[in-house]
């Protein structure tokens, strides 16, 4: 039986894992390679590493971080942040990523999705969407949540899937870092609109939040950062609880 995936996310800034609230007030949370290995040992089904500043100056640092984190990882490893061109993606794959996540660049040029998928396969292309509730609908934001695009999240998710995305990583900006629960309504709308897997992100605070986003939000996977980094809940503790709540997860693993 296909299980629901639990994904540990590392937001990286200048070579360190950080975590903020609603994309602001960043706190240090450790070394990326050490965090990635620890989460994988604890039972994370995947590791996502997002370079949240992604300025051109720190690309070299990022690739070194990816290389170091990838070496001992034998679960899927996704890297995002600052990927603007096919060559940027190629460098990240070369450093050891299995999938890349693209956000702003895909909104600017949706053909980038197909270009990367054409060379590395659709399974390697995750389109990340940062969504915020605006006037009863959900709007796509880019540039780390700073720039409103005027685009509707559901329509963009459908378009990304048609362009060749393998998965959608859907972050609720309203819930990010708040630990107040996933936005199940947002996740469900997108999950029902596309046939590719949807990863719910933003708001994880407890095992109950995961149960809700799998049952009510119809998410295929759920991603969290804060609760894992700051020791509120290890991946192993979370999976143990989900298993006992009859959510199908890779457990024991």
């Amino acid at each position: 039986m296909l299980t629901k995936r639990i994904i540990a996310c590392l937001d990286v800034d200048g070579g360190r894992v950080v975590k903020g609230v609603r994309f602001k007030n960043l706190r240090d949370a450790g070394d990326p390679a050490e965090c990635a290995t620890a989460h994988a040992r604890s039972g994370a089904d995947e590791i996502v590493l997002l370079d949240i500043t992604a300025t051109s100056g720190n690309r070299h640092t990022l690739l070194e971080v990816v290389r170091k984190a990838a070496r001992p990882l034998f679960v899927p490893f996704t890297v995002g942040g600052g990927i603007r061109l096919l060559n940027d993606a190629a460098a990240v794959f070369d450093a050891g990523a299995d999938k890349i996540a693209i956000n702003s660049a895909a909104v600017r040029d949706p053909t980038l999705i197909g270009k990367i998928a054409g060379r590395f396969g659709s399974q390697a292309v995750v389109v990340a969407i940062d969504a915020r509730k605006v006037n009863g609908g959900y709007e796509v934001f880019t540039a780390g949540g700073r720039v409103p695009t005027g685009r509707d999240v559901i329509r963009w998710a459908r378009e990304a899937a048609v362009c060749g995305a393998g998965e959608i990583l859907l972050t609720s900006m309203d819930r990010d870092g708040t630990q107040s629960g996933f936005d199940c309504e947002l996740v469900r709308e997108v999950a029902e609109a596309v046939s590719i897997p949807v990863i719910a992100s933003g708001g994880a605070g407890s095992a109950l939040d995961f149960i809700q986003v799998f049952r009510e939000g119809c998410a295929d996977a759920a991603l969290a950062a804060s609760i894992f980094h700051f020791g509120i809940e290890s991946v192993a503790q979370l999976k143990h609880k989900l298993h006992h709540a009859s959510v199908s997860v890779r457990w024991p693993c």
């Binding site: 296909l2 299980t3 995936r5 089904d45 659709s122 393998g166 590719i196 897997p197 693993c253």
Partner: peptide, 10 residues
């Protein structure tokens, strides 16, 4: 079923 089949299966 959704396609592709992505994730951990037994």
């Amino acid at each position: 079923v959704k396609s592709p089949h992505v994730g951990w299966n037994s």
